[in-house]
């Protein structure tokens, strides 16, 4: 699904990612953990194609194709989804309108006709239930006036609607109370299929009690310094990042 080879990334001349290697297969859930400022969000943005990052070396292969030359919207249309750590507000644009636009642009990219209104609305209903979302959500403006928890639920709701091949969830657990965490995690779990993959970026082991990863990576100072099974997360929780610092 995704294969990152020796990825080096700089921002304004400063190297943030110093040679990342990552292999994610279809059906897998990977967790990337690590302390603040080690490059976790940078990695997410670079995979998603955000401008302002200079890739100095390496490649990102998604579904067998190097996507570094593709724009952010092309990567999205290829099936890449990023759940934002800080979802932005778009005043006056309803979630319904936003998602219909997104789905239709993705369909256009694939040479398909726009989704019929009834089909779209039916899908909205179905996915709203999945995330236990309120009825009126669809008519609200994107993230405007949302609580932290609502914003994160809305990210997963969008993921459910767009049905990506690879979802990268950047600190989806931050700012969530335990109930919201449970709902968000169960949403992610229900969306798991043998043919899609998820990368969960998080500080805490807590989320991984709900979304059980196949592989856990520790990102430290722009490198993946340790990879292992789900027990690695527990070890981290127990020993803290200090332990990694000493190891590396």
């Amino acid at each position: 699904m995704l294969s990152i080879r020796n990825l080096k990334v700089s921002i304004k001349g400063k190297e943030i990612l110093k040679g990342i290697n990552l292999e994610v297969k279809a059906g897998e859930v990977h967790a990337i953990m690590g302390p603040n400022g080690t490059g976790k969000s940078t990695l997410a943005y670079v995979i998603a194609g955000r401008e302002g990052y200079e890739v100095t070396e390496g490649e990102i292969i998604f579904k067998g194709r190097n996507i570094l030359g593709l724009s952010a919207e092309e990567r999205a249309c290829e099936g890449l989804f990023l759940g934002f750590q800080y979802p932005v507000e778009i005043p006056g644009v309803s979630i319904t309108n936003f998602l219909r636009t997104a789905i239709n642009e993705q369909r256009k990219y694939k040479g398909l006709d726009p989704v019929p209104a009834t089909e779209f609305l039916a899908r909205m209903e179905e996915k709203k239930k999945l995330l236990e979302l309120q009825e009126k959500l669809a008519s609200r403006s994107v993230n405007e006036g949302f609580s932290g928890g609502e914003k994160k639920k809305n990210e997963i709701f969008q993921m459910a609607m767009l049905e990506p091949m690879l979802a990268i969830l950047d600190e989806t657990d931050s700012g969530l109370d335990i109930d919201a965490l449970r709902i968000v995690a169960s949403g992610v779990n229900k969306l798991r299929r043998p043919d899609n993959s998820t990368i969960v970026i998080t500080h805490y082991q807590r989320l991984l009690e709900y979304i059980v990863p196949d592989v856990v990576h520790v990102l430290f100072d722009g490198r993946i310094v340790k990879s292992g099974g789900k027990e690695l997360a527990l070890l981290l929780e127990e020993k803290g990042y200090e332990w990694i610092r000493k190891e590396s």
Partner: peptide
Amino acid sequence: SDDQLFYCKQRGISSESAIGLIVNGYA
């Protein structure tokens, strides 16, 4: 904002459509 544009683009919406969307929301 660049954040708004990137958010839209990440969902598959082109810059032009994103601006149309944001401006219509504003208006």
